[in-house]
Amino acid sequence: MITTIIFDLGAVLIDWSPNYLYSKVFREEEMRFFLETICTPAWNEEQDAGRPLQEATDLLVAQFPEHEANIRLFYDRWSEMLQGEIPGMIDLLRVIKASGNYKLYALTNWSAETFPIAQERFEFLGWFDGIVVSGVEKDRKPFPSFYNTLLNRYAIKPDEALFIDDNLRNIRAAEQLGINAIHFTHVDALKPQLIDYGIPVGTV
């Protein structure tokens, strides 16, 4: 029986993408090159794991001085990467919360320095019984230690928990720890999967 539901945030509840910022700066092909070779996902993950934003920026500027201005935009205008809520997901979260039958947690790869921006913008982040942020813990998905931080801090039994994430790598890591997991693609695909676990979704 599921008693606990654990949500990823980015691309599950919150629509975040560097494309939203850099599409204002580059043409499509230039933007793709910049985000695949300079401000890469691997570079960003190190900030998620606790590396300071200033240190990360200085590192890239030293490597790519010709791109300094656009590198600095990444965190100077980071809030422009937050587009809003994933359609339908907050209504679904509200229904689950209102049922009163589940503990709700978030387990997110997110810089400790930028997460407060999201907390100010998205009221629903206050609905969770706990949020574990990678940048605060200086650890991240898919490492087992990060999942165990959540499980141990809130006394969660893995076999009673359901984890929802858009990244298949993170899903596999959760399953290795005995946590039930759903690979998120779209709210309409998620609803019947939740029902299969006995979680009511109402008329959302």
Rank of each mutant, 00 (worst) to 15 (best):
D166K: 01
N167W: 08
N167K: 12
N167I: 11
L168Y: 13
R169F: 08
N170C: 13
N170M: 10
I171S: 01
I171H: 06
R172D: 13
R172F: 10
A173Q: 07
A173R: 11
A174K: 03
A174W: 06
E175R: 14
E175L: 09
E175N: 07
E175D: 11
E175H: 06
E175Y: 09
Q176F: 07
Q176R: 15
Q176V: 02
L177K: 02
L177Y: 04
L177S: 02
G178M: 12
G178R: 07
I179H: 05
I179Q: 04
I179L: 14
I179M: 06
I179D: 03
I179W: 06
N180V: 13
N180S: 15
N180A: 15
A181F: 09
A181R: 02
I182Y: 00
H183Q: 09
H183I: 00
F184H: 04
F184R: 00
T185Q: 10
T185F: 00
H186E: 15
H186Y: 14
H186N: 13
V187G: 05
V187A: 12
V187F: 11
V187I: 14
D188S: 12
D188H: 09
D188K: 10
A189F: 09
A189Y: 09
L190F: 07
L190W: 03
K191Q: 14
P192H: 06
P192I: 13
P192Q: 08
Q193R: 10
Q193S: 05
Q193T: 00
Q193E: 14
L194W: 05
L194G: 04
I195K: 05
D196R: 10
Y197P: 12
Y197K: 13
Y197W: 15
Y197D: 11
G198P: 09
G198W: 07
G198K: 04
I199F: 01
I199P: 00
I199H: 03
I199V: 15
